[in-house]
Nucleic acid binder design. Sequence first.
RNA 1: CCGGAUGUGGUGAAAUUGGUAGACACGUCAGACUUAGGAUCUGAUGCCGCGAGGUAUGGGGGUUCGAGUCCCUCCAUCCGGACCA
Length: 960
Amino acid sequence: MEYNFRQIEKNWQKKWSADETYKVSNDSNRPKFYVLDMFPYPSGAGLHVGHPLGYISSDIYSRYKRLKGFNVLHPMGYDAFGLPAEQYAIEHGIHPAEATDVNIKTFRSQLDNIGFSFDWSRELRTSDPSYYKWTQWIFLRLFNSFFNRSSKKAEGIDTLVTAFEKEGNSSHPMPNAQYPIKTFSAGQWQQFDEVNQQDILMQYRLAYCGFGEVNWCEALGTVLANDEVINGFSERGNHPVVKKKLRQWYLRITEYADRLLEGLEKVDFSEAMKEMQTNWIGKSYGAEIDFKLKDQTELLRVYTTRPDTIFGVDFMVIAPEHELTDAITTPAQRAAVDEYIAYVKSRSERERMAEKKISGVDTGALAINPFSGKEIPVWISEYVLAGYGTGAIMAVPCGDERDFKFARHFNIPVTNIIGDHFNGAEANSTKDAKLTNSDFLNGTPMREASEIVIRHLEIAGSGTRKVNYKMRDAAFSRQRYWGEPFPIKWEKGIAIPLTDKELPLELPYVASYKAGPEGEGPLANIPAWTSLHLETNTMPGYAGSSWYFLRYMDPGNDQEFCSREASDYWNQVDIYIGGTEHAVGHLLYSRMWTKILFDLGHIGYDEPFRKLVNQGMITAVGYYAKILNFRTADGAVRHLFGNDADISSGSEFVVGKELSFVTDRYDQDSDFKRIPYAGKYLDVEHRMTRKAFATYKAEFGAKYRIENEKDFAWVKGDDGDDSDFFTMELVSEKMSKAKYNSINPDDLVEKYGADTFRMYEMFLGPVEQSKPWDTKGIEGVHRFLKKLWRLFFDENKGRIWNEDAATAAELKVLHRTIRKIDDDTERFSFNTAVSNFMICVNELSDLKSHKKEILSPLLVLLSPYAPHISEELWKAIGNEGSVLDASYPVFDAKHVTETSKEYPVSVNGKVRTNISISLSATQAEVEEIVLSADTVKKWLEGKPHKKIIYVKGKMINVVV
RNA sequence: CCGGAUGUGGUGAAAUUGGUAGACACGUCAGACUUAGGAUCUGAUGCCGCGAGGUAUGGGGGUUCGAGUCCCUCCAUCCGGACCA
């Protein structure tokens, strides 16, 4: 009887599915546990071996918790709406709905292949009307609420209207600093017409519509959120992104900045993750200072985090787009300023970011230092951004590098306010100096000075304490088709929300999803849609994923997004597993939505994820032809490095630019030639021989096109073709279908089985760590499972397991394993757990142990990792029921206690020998034994020992 | 430039609180069984050395009886964020 994993795995998968083994009830007297994976976007490429890493971890943990007596929720679904799906659809000429359907089928079959314990009866997809009905419903809650800054929580917009009617907006300051109306009284409110009133309310709503600079991506034909733009290019597709003013929907996430920061203290995320979110929110403390301008009535307001440096201000810089630029420019500087503004306008965002050239123009205006009365020139320069702070800065060159470079470039004199800390050659941003040249602050440590300055400013009325955030409100609309329609219609410029009864507002089926006539979404092309004045934008990808963890709790509910009973029972996600790439996007948005739903009383907690585990990325190995060895006409062997070597005339072969392996667009600019999946054809020195290359071509040639091989320079060795070779470079790179470097789990499951695959993925290393994929090592894990099998069955003899009583040695092995596996699993150390299984099976094999008493508990331990083989053997040795419902073995210390220990004995810190000593030995006894040992005597060389360090159960060290 | 993480054999990696560095595997080498093996089993395998022994966790320094682990400093790689005032 041999280990026929294909048969075994298929059988059990069928059985588990038929028995609904993984169906989870909301009604249980066992404690709950919620394990969630970040659900995938079902791409056309399917899963590669990197994806299941997190899923396997969560699956092991879920099964482990189940054995430990918990009612475990472990669901899976699909993030099916969004840009990538639509791009894919356009590229392949298929409707996104169909493409998504096909892709999901592929995903599902790949997932099923690995034997996960997902409760598929709870599957959801964000593009399903029964799901996005509730996304729209939550959107309406956001639309109909505002952030009350006094209570620091979301409240219904009707409370705000009541307040306006009674007292204007005196208790609820206008959140939008750019809005023309800042304050109004109850009387004024009554007199505004409806459009006006609605417009004001729009400034308060948590989901609001406004005009704003957005990240416009021409190639994708849409607006992107800040986190979807990387260095001026789209995250998806790497297309250029420009700033553009458009009517957009936004989420007022800035109001939640503080709550999002505070919340980080009560969740178990990695420090790195918290740091990333904190940086993204970018809270800074400082002051807004109003500078009077000489001969002008306007005030120039700046934001600074360093009010303590107020006496070091040598010039002011305002953004070229600043609203005061025009008004304050003196006639003498007019021409230069106009010219500079024209220059700035001609430059793209990208150019401005890329180039570090110092540029700027003096406006001729003079600002007046509120304390010293010093007159300070006001410049414009593109290094100051209109969008941050007030779009103007007070420049302190001795303490700020950019300011210093600017001052030096334009010969502006620098005031030193930090004494010895400033060397005149570069700025020093220290906070540890005592101030100099600072009037009443002279001698004050900088850290104390900020407070003093702010107090003085507030008394003088020329400044206020101010907290600033880097984070902007999140753009929440896309000019695209494949997303949730907004449940909003427009009448006379007023956004009217649909009623809950009108939901879902279904996405109409269209044959073509090209952009609308004026850059709007494709929905603008549908007369039936526009005639109802419905909003033509759709929601972004992160809408559906911001609350999906709640839907799993109560997936079929058509009355509510999730019943309060269900969300109270399952509560927060206990373990959330996914990649770091969602650190700022998805995680911040879902945390915000959770807080809003909590504030409005729909759920009972305001953080969605109690603990977050970030799985590392599995990288691929890329193979590049690096060194080519070739023979020239004069017979010399030469080495050609990549394709950048210049081949002198007279060589036997024409090599160089013509030499190439054309495989994909990524190698166009590379110095090396990519040869996909070359791994198993290389020898230890990463050399590809001519013979191996011929085999390679036979297998992959048709698939990946290898061109111009005739120009390839093979080295002729003395012993024939075998010694012809070229050397390849191996590099780590991201797995992607386009790079022809991804590995499909299906292939590995087919060859080794799901259990082997699962354990091997875990065996690679710690879950959180990124690591390269190398298929070679999988054999070792497969051998382990076969070896396990042989504890039960012999190829020839059949059954060899028996029901004899276990020996002390066997029990010791078992209980050591129980302790290790339990501990490792609990702390997500799955790689060491796999090692410990191997050690256990090796030891049992050495003991020739085939006893059910030992093997049964072992199978329970193993079942989270390798469920199929565990279930098969569990049944084969005559156990009742499923191993999945067995109870977890309990560690008993009495089986592993030792009476003596083989101590490493060191002399002066170097281990010289091992001596077995009873664990109950006293210090004096140990000293006597150690000193009488021959080896120790030898190393002491007759010298007296100074002292003997004896750490019970650990080691002994003799100090001379 | 700022922030975070990581540096251990040919490779993936262990070492939970400062206590025998390299567990467990891959690979390699040698051997056994076999018609054959890409099956299975046994042994060896950080480096130098015939050996005794020496030496070794990115480099340098420190604390300690004892450091991969703690402290200082420098270097390298990866990942984020970057004209953020």
